[in-house]
């Protein structure tokens, strides 16, 4: 993405809308790593008067394109940003990250229909397909399958990849940007909720929760092991 500390306010930057706004807790540290959000703010998470709680507020946290949290809005916002790029003759790309449960919202499909209708090839939709929502697994609460076919039927070029593998993500994004058709692209990221933490992995009950000391230690240990294995694998595969 053409996005960083130097250009996060530039009209030419790429845009990312985190439509599943409850992912704010992982968005903030990334913005801090990029040097955009003040790192010193991180420990104030959820404290009274803090600029930053579960759902991030664009007016209070630098580097965000939109305040999200009410699900189902992001793709339409992205559509508007992409259309603005076209009108303003800018060549930035707009990325929108959706939750799979979020795709229950009719508004997502209204936006999808429009994106195809308007041939928005400068808009890239990513869906975090972790099969989990709050009340249960997506296929138990409200079945989404055949999910990729739904996007295809709405006029999208669809890619399905392993959403935990950076090389796959990078190559899918490159392909999406090189897209020569007049269809918008949707990348379905097959993922596991809580990947990297054994007791959370693929468990919808961990959508929202509080860790006790023991669990915290276990989670950190799991994540370290996960990271080590990931690096070892990448080195072996030369990526």
């Amino acid at each position: 993405m053409n996005f960083g500390k130097e250009n996060y306010l530039s009209p030419d930057r790429d845009r990312l809308i985190i439509s599943k706004g409850h992912a704010g807790v992982i968005t903030a540290p990334i913005l801090a790593d990029l040097g955009i959000m003040d790192e010193a703010l991180l420990p104030s998470y959820n404290h009274t008067g803090s600029p930053f709680g579960v759902h991030l507020d664009k007016r209070k946290v630098k580097g965000l394109e939109a305040s999200t949290g009410s699900l189902g809005h992001g793709l339409s916002i992205g559509l508007g940003l992409a259309m603005a790029a076209r009108l303003n003759q800018k060549d930035y790309t707009t990325y929108v990250l959706l939750g799979d449960g979020e795709c229950d919202e009719g508004s997502i499909w209204e936006a999808a229909m429009s994106a195809a209708h308007f041939k928005m090839t400068n808009l890239i939709t990513l869906v975090d397909r972790n099969n989990c929502m709050i009340d249960g697994r997506t296929e138990d609460v409200m079945a989404l399958e055949p999910f990729a076919d739904k996007w295809r039927a709405f006029g999208f070029e669809v890619m399905e990849i392993d959403g935990h593998l950076f090389p796959e993500i990078i190559s899918a994004l490159e392909k999406a940007k090189a897209n020569k058709t007049d269809k918008p692209v949707c990348i379905i990221l097959n993922t596991f909720k809580g990947e990297g933490v054994g007791f959370m992995r693929d468990n919808y009950k961990w959508h929202y929760g509080t860790l006790n000391e023991e669990q915290l230690a276990e989670a950190f240990a799991d994540l370290e092991a996960y990271e080590t294995a990931r690096i070892a694998r990448a080195e072996k595969e030369g990526k």
């Binding site: 709680g53 579960v54 759902h55 991030l56 009410s70």
Partner: peptide, 8 residues
């Protein structure tokens, strides 16, 4: 929904 933020 105190900590969730103004959207909630």
């Amino acid at each position: 929904f105190s900590q969730a933020g103004s959207t909630h």
